[in-house]
Each structure stands twice: as C-alpha cells, then as structure tokens.
C-alpha cells in the first residue's frame, strides 16, 4: 500500500472518506460546562433557519442533554445506541424538530456508557446521513476519552468551544493538540460567555488574548447573555430570541459555517454617555 504523506499514519484506519453531501462538524471543548450543548443546539437552529437540512447527534452517552435544550425530550423513542446495536433503523431514531421540518436530532442513550458506540460506528452513521443533509452537527461529551474520540471520528471540521478562563483555555489547548494529532486540525474557536465590561476593565481575557494564546482562528465570540438560561428552561434555543445578543452571535457563526463572510460583531455595549465620551477622548 502506498502511503500518501498527507493521509493518516498507518495503524489507524483513515477515518473519513469524504462523501458528497453533508459537512460533519463536531462541537467539543475538553472542559465541561463551557457551552457545547447550547452551541450545538443554537447552531442547529440557526442553520435550519438558513434553510439548511441539519441533523444533530448527541454523543454524550449516559449524560444526554441536547434533547432538553432543544425541547425534544418527550419525543424520544430510540437513541444512538439503539441504532448502533440494530434495534431500530437510523430513520426511527431521528426526531424531527417541531418548528423546522428539516432539522433532526439523534439523541444519546441515557442508561449506557461511551463504550456502547465506537468511532467506526460514528463514521458509518454519518456516511449514511451525508447524502440527505447539508450539515451534521455532533455534540461531543466533555473529556478526552472514548466519547470525544467517537465525536471527532467522522468530523470534517471541529469547533472548539471555550470560555475566557484559565481552566477552559488550558483544556481547549489540550483538545486542539489532540485534534491535530488525529489529522482533524486545526479547528476553529468559539469563545463563549464573554463579559465585555470585564474585558474592558482588564479582568477577563479578551478574544485577542485567547486566540493569541491558542494560536487558532476564531469563528465566533458569544457574549454572556441572561437570555440563555431562560431559553434552555423553555427548551427554545436563544437563537430564536431575536433581541438576544448571544442569539445574534450564534446566527453569525452559522452564516460563517455556511460560507458567508460575516465580520465579528463588536461586543462593546455602547455604555452610558459619559463612558462614550471618555472613550472618544482616550482613543478607546
């Protein structure tokens, strides 16, 4: 067998043979609680609003949450593990979204563990879905173990979600290294939960600081937004709230994923009149 220098090293099966159709995008982070599931749900909705055919896959087996964030928890009959173990057809595990008929969710199993699915299973499932969709978004579990490996195995692109905090940035760096080692790199960064007033005071890492530290391209900056929690309380992702700043940020990321050139939005609140005058004088 001749080895193309750009292909995966021998010993590991070349995981993705790109088939025409959907682009597979994995959302991961290393650290838990930074907003992977919220991001996946919102990007799914935002892409569906752009008239794209989208399927979301929750790979957090044993700790599923994408279903509740999407408001689809009452409609689950079969899950990802049922598909892998042949108890149902792939179609039967796909839950159609109430509002967007071209948006589907494949939920994780809640009573099993990550070893119930293998990276090869994920590649096979995604390849079966590719011809019918534009985007397949995979919500990765936290960590760097089997669940993470399952989630990135079929990926054409990886989005790394992080927060402007030392622990989240450090874990993001570790994840970026692992993604590159799997030839899935370099990935693009989503900086979530940015508090612009703290950045301005020099008490929070800025997007420029984080991209500088991680040496990675950024695809979106999502401001901290009090609308996010009520949105997940209601099972209606914040992207559907037209006045939400986080919602705008997620819609912009979706447009960038769709190939549009959308500039990063300015996160500065205009502030009060004194602050605005002060900024003019200090050149800020």
């Amino acid at each position: 067998m001749t080895q193309n220098p750009n292909s995966a090293p021998t010993g590991r099966p070349n995981p993705v043979r790109r088939i025409a159709g959907a682009k597979v995008i994995t959302v991961t982070s290393g650290k838990g609680g930074v907003g992977k599931t919220t991001t996946t749900a919102n990007l799914g909705i935002a892409l569906a609003r752009l008239d794209k055919k989208v399927v979301l896959i929750d790979t957090d087996i044993g700790l599923r949450n994408l279903d509740v964030v999407m408001g689809l928890e009452n409609r689950i009959v079969y899950d990802l593990v049922d598909v892998v173990e042949g108890r149902c057809k792939l179609r039967q595990a796909m839950i159609k979204h109430k509002q967007f008929p071209e948006l589907y969710l494949i939920p994780a199993a809640q009573t099993r563990d990550k070893t119930a699915v293998s990276p090869a299973d994920m590649v096979q499932i995604c390849n079966a879905l590719r011809p019918e969709f534009d985007f397949i978004l995979i919500d990765s579990p936290a960590g760097i173990e089997r669940g993470f490996r399952n989630a990135i195995a079929p990926a054409d692109e990886v989005l790394i979600v992080t927060n402007p905090e030392v622990s989240a940035v450090r874990d993001a760096d570790r994840i970026i290294g692992l993604i590159e080692a799997e030839n899935k790199g370099p990935g693009r960064l989503i900086l979530n939960r940015v508090k612009m007033d703290m950045v301005r005071r020099g008490e929070m890492l800025s997007a420029a600081d984080v991209t500088d530290i991680l040496a990675i391209t950024i695809i979106g900056i999502v401001p901290e937004d009090e609308n996010v929690i009520p949105a997940s309380n209601n099972g209606i992702p914040v992207t559907l709230n037209e006045s939400s700043r986080a919602g705008v940020a997620f819609r912009n990321i979706a447009r960038r994923l769709n190939g549009e050139n959308v500039p990063l939005m300015p996160l500065e609140n205009s502030g009060n009149i004194l602050q605005r005058i002060a900024r003019i004088f200090s050149g800020g």
Binding site: V166, R200, G202, E203, M204, D209, A278, S282
Partner: peptide
Amino acid sequence: MAGFFDRMLGRSKDSGSANKAKDRLQF
C-alpha cells in the same frame, strides 16, 4: 489625561488579572 479617562472607564489593563491569566497560561 488618558489615565483619568481610563479610570473613568474602569480600565486598568496593566494591573488587571487578565494579563496575569495570559502570562500564566502561556507558561
């Protein structure tokens, strides 16, 4: 002058903890 406006804006880039976070992370 700029220092006054920086204070008014609550800016203290050099003494802020963000710089410290960046240095520690880079190390």
